[in-house]
């Protein structure tokens, strides 16, 4: 392969990997939006919060280490963090959503903005605001095998992240398609009222869906944290997830994945090949322009739920 093509491939791959991260955050959005019609602005902060909690369970110098003089093994830390995210979901339902159920979507949306800042503040208070390196033993550095055989530079961490995301999506798909709770979640997404009428408790469903979103956030948090350390800018990737959602459709899980990948690749390729002509920094706004163009032509997104109309 020529050097040129190889370089292009590397750019695309690194874009794909960034896209996986966006997709993970967008996935959390989609889950909550489908089940409750709430656009959860706090999804990015959930990822930050999860990563911070995990850090404090397992890292030397974290909370647990300070207080008790030991750290949890990584697997236990992950389980505990999942527990924390379920508690957070439960608290959110109890303290916020429950009281706003019958309000307009915009009010719920604003409440999630508030939630984002509260979570960020609480995270700051509990865990401190310095950048923390998260190391849960994910292999670092370039893949030697690809480098030696093809001359291709690919981060192991990124491959790991992509595989994890794929497994996560498969698990979620099975959960949604095959389980009783999953079916109820899809039912709620379709018709709240009808779901109520067959005895589905919306409150339970909301706690479940926020917990699942919390777990997805944990995976996203782990990946970002391992890549560039846990820092508060992580909560801003929620903003990157918005164009992903516009592209993929707010109600589609595959849409979130594909949308994430398109945005990831698109902005990397644009940055590298168009950047020099316009002075760079395309990466920061490319996604939004793409989303805007998309809104003109396909407002429901690539995979947005088709509105069934019988004629």
């Amino acid at each position: 392969m020529s050097g040129e093509a190889l370089f292009f491939l590397e750019v695309v791959i690194s874009g794909l990997m960034a896209g996986v991260m966006y997709a993970l955050v967008a996935l959390g959005f989609v889950l909550i939006f489908k089940a409750s019609g709430v656009l959860n602005f706090a999804q990015g902060v959930l990822a930050l919060f999860a990563a911070l909690a995990l850090y404090d369970f397992i890292a030397p110098g974290g909370w647990v280490d300070d207080l008790f003089g030991f750290t949890f093994p990584i697997w236990a830390g992950i389980i505990l963090t999942v527990g924390v995210m379920i508690i957070v979901a439960w608290l959110i339902e109890r303290l916020v959503l429950q009281h706003l159920v019958q309000q307009e979507p915009i009010i719920l949306f604003m409440s999630t903005i508030g939630l984002a800042y509260i979570l960020e503040g609480v995270g700051d208070m509990l865990f401190g605001s310095d950048v923390k390196p998260l190391d849960i033993g994910i292999p670092q550095g370039a893949s030697d095998w690809l480098l030696d055989n093809y001359g291709l530079y690919v981060e192991k961490l990124e491959v790991f992240a992509a595989l994890t995301a794929a497994i996560l999506v498969i698990v979620l798909a099975v959960f949604f398609q095959k389980t009783r709770i999953g079916r109820a979640l899809r039912a709620v997404a379709d018709d709240h009222q009808a779901a109520l009428s067959v005895g589905v408790s919306l409150r339970t469903i909301w706690v479940i869906v926020w917990s699942v979103a919390g777990m997805v956030a944990l995976v996203a948090g782990i990946m970002w944290g391992s890549k560039s350390g846990i820092q508060f800018s992580l909560s801003l990737i929620a903003l990157k997830a918005l164009p992903v959602l516009i592209l993929g459709g707010f109600t589609s899980v595959p849409g979130a994945i594909i949308g994430g990948l398109i945005i990831g690749v698109g902005e990397k390729v644009a940055e590298v090949y168009l950047g020099p002509y316009v002075g760079g920094a395309i990466e920061n706004w490319f996604a939004y322009v793409l989303a805007l163009v998309f809104l003109f032509f396909r407002p429901q997104g690539l995979f947005g739920e088709r509105i069934i109309e019988r004629v």
Partner: peptide, 15 residues
Amino acid sequence: HCFEHLTVEDNLLTG
């Protein structure tokens, strides 16, 4: 008020 995007059987099972 059927669950439009669910299959007929899934609708019944949700019941």
